[in-house]
Amino acid sequence: MGQIQLNQVTKSFGDVQVIPPLDLTIEDGEFCVFVGPSGCGKSTLLRLIAGLEDVSSGHIAINGKDATMTPPAKRGLAMVFQSYALYPHMTVRKNIAFPMKMAGMSEDEQKRRIDAAATALNLTDYLDRKPGQLSGGQRQRVAIGRSIVREPDAFLFDEPLSNLDAALRVGMRLEISELHERLQTTMIYVTHDQVEAMTMADKIVVLRSGYIEQVGSPLDLYHAPRNKFVAGFIGSPKMNLIEGPEAAKHEAHTIGIRPEHIDVSKTEGTWKGVVGVAEHLGSDTFIHVHDTGLADMITVRIIGDIEAKHGDTVYLTPQLDQMHRFDDKGLRIA
């Protein structure tokens, strides 16, 4: 069980309202990701759910019961912090045992759960070390271990991977996804990395300055962004947004076309431009095209490799059925 419901929740620090009235339901067993630019209130929202901050108004219900005034320890949630927040003077074993010790669990049961968690997280060899003697990825696993032994109703993660290097991040991303598959426990995961959001989430919540811009599955957000902000935020490289006469041709204020939905030719096409930088990744090539008269730069993604170098003239043809249209308020035109 781990259903979480926010009802007209707001949060202000002094005069500044960081979270305007907000409604959100996270279903039991769901992997829900909060994404948004820095400072949009993701951490604040997570801390409100955890109970580490008091709501200014509104209600939070966990498993259908009002938990607005419940202290953090009683909410049945576990949190993994960005800095890991391990207890530096305790060994890994003691760190993992701490929540069970606080709950007054028997020594045998503690030991059984520590061993289970250590095996699952590959920590068996490190149980007697202090956190200071571990690598970033190992510390992260200890922090996760400390949260799973309590068997909480839901896990809260605040940018847990942002201190890791790129390779480790991909590995830990998979481990967390696998953990979710295995435990089937609700997870709320904060990140500003849209790749993490797309790959891990059942449901993505896109936030901008405290407002929910859109809630939906990763593919919903990819195929049908509700507005220009979501369109630009989800997807990598970013969607090309084009205004002016070209957009008017399609009866829109702005048209959006993703880099992977543009065909490139050296001889003919709808738009003509000059290659600026071409990024060859091997599997894909990103070409940044200038001087099209449409926007500063149009990014195109081509599967595989292509002969394209600085200064070449290319022709671009958008796939019309993949084009997104937005009105003058930035909202999607169906």
Partner: peptide, 22 residues
């Protein structure tokens, strides 16, 4: 680190135990 105290709070440690253990 304030997050350590918050982590202990979430781990179910009341004020006096947070003082003693953290």
């Amino acid at each position: 680190d304030g997050e350590q105290l918050e982590a202990a709070e979430m781990d179910g440690a009341p004020v006096l135990k947070r003082f003693w253990y953290i």
